[in-house]
Design a protein around this nucleic acid. Sequence first.
DNA 1: GTCTATATACGGATAGAC
DNA 2: GTCTATCCGTATATAGAC
Lengths: 188, 188
Amino acid sequence: MGIKAELNRQQILETADGLFYRQGYDHTSFTDIADAVGIARGNFYYYFKTKDEILSAVISKRSENARQTLQEWDKEFPDARDRLKRYIQTLTQHKDAIEQYGCPLGSLCTEMAKLQHSQQDDANKLFEIFRNWLVEQFSLLGHKNDAVQLALHLQARTQGVALVTNAYRDQAFLQNEAKDLEDWVDQL
Amino acid sequence: MGIKAELNRQQILETADGLFYRQGYDHTSFTDIADAVGIARGNFYYYFKTKDEILSAVISKRSENARQTLQEWDKEFPDARDRLKRYIQTLTQHKDAIEQYGCPLGSLCTEMAKLQHSQQDDANKLFEIFRNWLVEQFSLLGHKNDAVQLALHLQARTQGVALVTNAYRDQAFLQNEAKDLEDWVDQL
DNA sequence: GTCTATATACGGATAGAC
DNA sequence: GTCTATCCGTATATAGAC
């Protein structure tokens, strides 16, 4: 594959990723993606043979990004408590997008479940990357026995905040809950 | 409208409601509903002229059901604390459905947001029925100043639990969180 | 690598016989 | 009230010229 093809492939992936997030996977057509990228619909199939293939590539890309982000946090914050706080701050960091479109991970998992899509498990594994990392952090803080429970709890809290913020278009609520969660981490 | 028409209309509504919940609104076709009810696709339009009209009727029906349920809880439980616990027990009550399909309200609001659907506000109002009722209960418990905040908090927690339970197919987590929430209500 | 043209299926929606 | 037949738009996907 040439350098130009690789560039276009990446561009298609990024565009598709954004559209899947904002419009949902099922509701996004090839035409939507092609128009946004600026290539012809027909040329599309040179890069991806099926829509599922694009989804697969998008999920892979998101997984890579997730792993890289978590690795960076590991390097940046020596204290597990600070890492957990950084995780929570993702909410405030993306508050505008969350208000409009919810959480990209959570809404994808929800949609895959409804569609009974074959890549439902792949989407959930993306979710698990964060969960496993959270388990690690809680373990480091001495919560050996209930690390999994705490990780799931935090993940559920953030998902709930994202969903409610999106439904009510209420950023103030997001800010309040983010603060509560940071306090909760402090008091662990 | 005759008695037979009214019966069929109700049957279509209930079937559509269930399919919208399990498959999502956008992903459910007239064919799906017609097949499930057992009537011809063409006959469908005798009852509902557009797909949006079915959605509108489904949301209205869900609203009525919600108001009725909350009214029953008000009668059954004189103590606001018991009412809040009953609300939380909805999670365990519907644990099988939540595991498979998530929360019918939350997932509908999420989908309406992605589709930028004209009835997004109507779906959110359904969400608000519960929020306003929760505000009332927290107010009755003496939390005049932070009743809204507490109501949103509880709603977000339940939504987060439903989403995560659905993604991980983990009923044990749902049970744990439901217990934690009941304890939280006790300690208010 | 990129384009146009097109095959094919399915979606919502309508018309009209019965 | 119920059915069949059909219109029309859009979706995925393919073929093949350039």
